[in-house]
Design a protein around this nucleic acid. Structure first.
Length: 867
RNA sequence: GCGCGAUUAGCUCAGCGGUAGAGCGCCUGCUUCACACGCAGGAAGUCGCAGGUUCGAACCCUGCAUCGCGCACCA
């Protein structure tokens, strides 16, 4: 057998194994399987997207769940795909069109534009999918879906028609959030409030009926004055109530200074500003409501792109809204109407995609009254759906409680076109998928992308697949889309399948940089996961990231953590390499058929314990905890302790003991590989096959179950005693590679069998067990397994050892005092549980014995002749 | 304004009622025949602050502070 490489080289392994997995079809889910089902649908990334660290975290968790489910004997489906990302994709293609052809989408026309989008999608849309493969994701690629697939798109339209017929979808002229860059309506969820530093402008207007009486009005948006159709005050405000019914002259536009009524409306807060509110029904949500109550005219002064129109007057038409603000302030100033400007910070709604202030705008849109709201709330409240961490349940419920109708129409071309037809001449309207015939034109708008992805959990599946795999088992996503997607999917699932779409929702945290900032393209603080994969391997990236990702908590990313992941993989690689250097493992090793040496019994018991901890971690979706448990077991228990302790057996003569050690090692290793596999799929598969644990993929191996190996507490005692001896050695600056003859005095009988192991752990030249302290100058280390004597002739002087012992005595005495103090409190002894009291008693005794032993050693030392 | 989260070693984080932990970083020694992507040892913390409950609090309760997030308000 050729010796394996000294270090794990992921690049040499990953692509080869992934190709093998695909070829063998291990990721393909069979709906007619008799095994129980486990299913995950991927949160579809944008087809325009590239892999981010957020995706790595999210998809690694899904892969972990899927791979473990397969090993646990579930027929497992991880269904992948992408969504069409209406605005994002359309914007990308429009940009290309502008750059390459200096054309807009209107120049090429709807049909040609959509052809170009599809062309773009075919060419560039698959990037993120390829990247997921690099990560090792075990998706069923034969079932990859896209929200614009024919069958899927048809279902989206059918759902629209259905909801329309149920009276839940309606068209209406409403105030909506308008994005002037994308020139489309947005849902409330797509508006992000951002604090903006601006000014509160105060201007005055004269009351027409009472010349000489002026009203002062405060506004942040003087550019909308031209659209004002009233001035409102609170009717209970004594300062102004008498003026209700009078008029003021609107100052702008100057060529048309219309008289505006002063109206009384309870919505006016008389604490704010001057208590006088200008009312712009066409450009403000609250003002629109006031306008409805008072039958005010609606004057639209803005174009869809955010520039002002002719209604705004000559001086303003064509100006952008922000330029218009400057102009309006200038004009007010020159009119002498501007009384003051105060710096002011307020929240302005920004478009999530385009990152510009949205404009409240009156327009004809399609709205959905959500179905199954109460049922969805109940499903989460009753635990039919569980959130991890559970605190998100409250956030979900609060949103559901205050849910508003959803604006689902978008003024875009790329997306699912609304299945509504308008008759050109009669003005008739029909909601159906096919054209009703000549003279009918389809509604030009498309649906919100989320209106298609809310069906993702069931409409990505064909009928047999759905029968087997719906409802899905888990959804892994970010809490930022709890409203956009999670809540809506629950409602859609209940409406169209009569059952919740998933049982568990795992919310991940957000990955931030070392300074705690969100990763973003503009900051350039977002490392490319593919670079990280090529530097550290996919497994190193996955493990390193997962180890620092506590459940639902934000993560401060540090590349060092990925280095750690890589190092850990290498550690595992070398533990296996060490085994291989001593021949082939036995795949079906059964250590319980042997008489087990202490350290074998110990590692087996620790393995059981580790498996239990890991299973408990999975039950609570605590992946970083699982990673940590694996790390501690593999590196600490298995490599640093077990392997180091049994090394003498490896190189020694063939014996029953050696056979037991090999059997134990093979048994544990084969379970380590399986337990690690969901986190680090490539290296574990490679080792699984190389070591001959199986001929086929580790994915087909059984998930390990804890055995019932009895704990061997003497092992822990031995390790701690060895550690104490090593510390003493270090205290004399004796290099760890200097092999010295150690003597252990007064060891219990069981130690004899493990003397070679202890010698190995100490890197001793030899370890002699004795009843009597050896003569001569020695460092003396009392431990729970006896007193170690390290000959120091010619190495160190009496004074140094004496000082060391004194310091040890003081430490031990302090512990005795601590324990005694506690036990001296009657309150403690009377109230604390018996076992806690007993523990303190034992502590007192143990430290007391240590003090004794150390004192004896010190006395013996001081009676030594000085060399 | 309401709600949620965070605050523990220089850094990143565990611990959530019974002797303060891990990894990294740092210091010391070591190319000991699996691994320097490593081995051995070490230093390092009034567990944000103030009260309270308890025999006992990093942990439970109350209040406060700082940072972050969400909702509401936003003339």
């Amino acid at each position: 057998m050729s010796e394996p490489a000294k270090a794990y080289e992921p690049a040499a392994v990953e692509d080869r194994l992934y190709a093998r997995w695909i070829e063998s079809g291990v990721f393909h889910a069979n709906p007619s399987s008799s095994k129980p089902a486990y299913a995950i649908v991927i949160p579809p990334p944008n087809v325009t997207g590239v892999l981010t660290l957020g995706h790595v975290l999210n998809n690694t968790i899904q892969d972990i769940l899927a791979r473990r489910a397969r090993m646990m004997g579930f027929e497992t489906l991880w269904l992948p795909g992408t969504d069409h990302a209406g605005i994002a994709t359309q914007t990308v293609v429009e940009r290309t069109l502008r750059k390459e052809r200096r054309q807009t989408r209107h120049d090429v026309g709807r049909e040609e534009f959509l052809r170009l989008v599809w062309e773009w999608k075919e060419k560039h849309g698959g990037i993120i999918i390829t990247q997921l493969r690099k990560l090792g994701c075990s998706c069923d690629w034969e079932r990859e879906r896209f929200t614009m697939d024919d069958a899927y798109a048809r279902r989206v339209q059918e759902v629209f028609v259905d909801l329309y017929e149920k009276g839940l979808i309606y068209r209406g002229k409403r105030m909506v959030n308008w994005c002037p860059v994308s020139r489309t309506a947005l849902s409330d969820e797509e508006v992000i409030p951002k604090p903006q530093k601006g000014f509160l402008y105060y201007f005055r207007v004269e009351v027409v009926e009472k010349p000489g009486t002026w009203l002062e009005i405060a506004t942040t948006r003087p550019e909308t004055i031209m659209g004002d159709t009233a001035v409102a005050v609170n009717p209970r405000d004594p300062r102004y109530s008498a003026l209700i019914g009078c008029h003021v002259l609107r100052p702008l536009p100057q060529e048309e200074r219309a008289p505006l009524p002063i109206i009384g409306d309870e919505a006016v807060d008389f604490e704010f500003g001057t208590g006088v509110l200008k009312v712009t029904p066409a450009h403000d949500k609250a003002d629109y409501e006031i306008g409805l109550r008072h039958h005010l005219p609606i004057v639209e002064i803005m174009n869809p792109d955010g520039t002002l129109n002719e209604q705004a007057g000559e001086g303003f038409a064509g100006l952008d809204r922000l330029e218009a603000r400057v102009e309006a302030v200038e004009q007010l100033r020159s009119l002498g109407a501007l009384t003051r400007e105060e710096p002011y910070e307020n929240n302005v709604g920004f478009s999530e995609r385009a990152d510009v202030p949205i404009e409240p705008r009156l327009s004809e849109q399609w709205f959905l009254k959500y179905p199954r709201v109460e049922e969805a709330r109940a499903a989460v409240r009753d635990g039919r759906i569980r959130f991890f961490p559970s605190r998100w349940e409250k956030v979900f419920d609060h949103w559901m409680e205050n849910i508003q109708d959803w604006c689902i129409s978008r003024q875009l071309w790329w997306g699912h076109r609304i299945p509504v037809w308008h008759h050109a001449s009669t003005g008739g309207m029909r909601c159906q998928i096919a054209s009703p015939g000549p003279g009918w034109e389809q509604d030009p708008d498309v649906l919100d992308t989320w209106f298609s992805s809310w069906l993702w959990a069931h409409e990505t599946m064909d009928v047999p697949t759905r029968q087997k795999f719906y409802p899905t088992s888990a959804l892994v996503t970010g809490p930022d889309i709890i409203f956009f997607w999670v809540a809506r999917m629950i409602m859609a699932g209940l409406e169209y399948q009569g059952e919740v779409p998933f049982r568990e929702v795992v919310f991940t945290g957000i990955i931030r940089d070392k300074q705690g900032r969100k990763m973003s393209k503009s900051l350039g603080n977002s490392p490319d996961p593919l670079d990280l994969i090529s530097k550290y391997g996919a497994d190193g990236l996955r493990f390193g990231l997962l180890r620092i990702a506590p459940q639902g908590q934000d993560i401060r990313f540090d590349e060092h953590q990925i280095v750690e992941g890589r190092n850990f993989c290498n550690k595992l690689w070398n533990a296996c390499r060490f085994r291989q250097m001593h021949g082939n493992p036995n795949a079906s090793a059964r250590p319980t058929n042997h008489v087990l040496p202490l350290f074998c019994a110990d590692i087996l018991a620790r393995l059981d314990d580790t498996i239990r901890k890991i299973d408990a971690g999975y039950a609570g979706q605590r992946f970083s905890e699982i990673a940590q448990v694996l790390y501690n077991f593999v590196w600490g228990d298995f490599c640093d302790r077990f392997i180091e302790a049994v090394k003498p057996d490896f190189s020694g003569q063939e014996s029953l003991r050696q056979a037991a050690v090999f059997a134990t090692m093979d048994y544990v290793l084969s379970r380590i590989l399986r337990l690690m596999h969901p986190f680090t799929p490539f290296i574990t598969e490679e080792l699984w096959l190389n070591l001959g644990f199986g001929n086929e993929s580790i994915q087909n191996a059984d998930w390990p179950e804890p055995g019932c190996h009895a704990p061997a507490p003497e092992a822990e005692t031995a390790f701690q005693s060895v550690a104490a001896a090593r510390t003493a050695r270090s205290a004399y600056s004796i290099p760890s590679n200097q092999r010295l003859p150690w003597v252990l005095v007064g060891a219990p009988p069981w130690v004899a069998a493990e003397a070679a192991a202890l010698a190995s752990l100490l890197n001793a030249k030899e370890l002699t067990l004795s009843d009597q302290p050896p003569g001569g100058l020695a460092a003396v280390v009392p431990t729970a397994i006896g007193t170690f004597h390290l000959p120091l002739e010619g190495i160190v002087d009496v004074a140094a050892e004496s000082a060391r012992l004194e310091s040890e005595i003081r430490k031990a005495e302090a512990e005795v005092v601590k324990a005694r103090a506690k036990l001296a409190q009657p309150a403690f002894v009377n109230h604390a549980p018996a076992e806690v009291v007993a523990e303190h008693r034992a502590r007192e005794v143990a430290w007391g014995e240590r003090v004794q032993a150390l004192q004896t050693a010190r006395d013996a030392l001081q009676s030594q002749p000085v060399p």
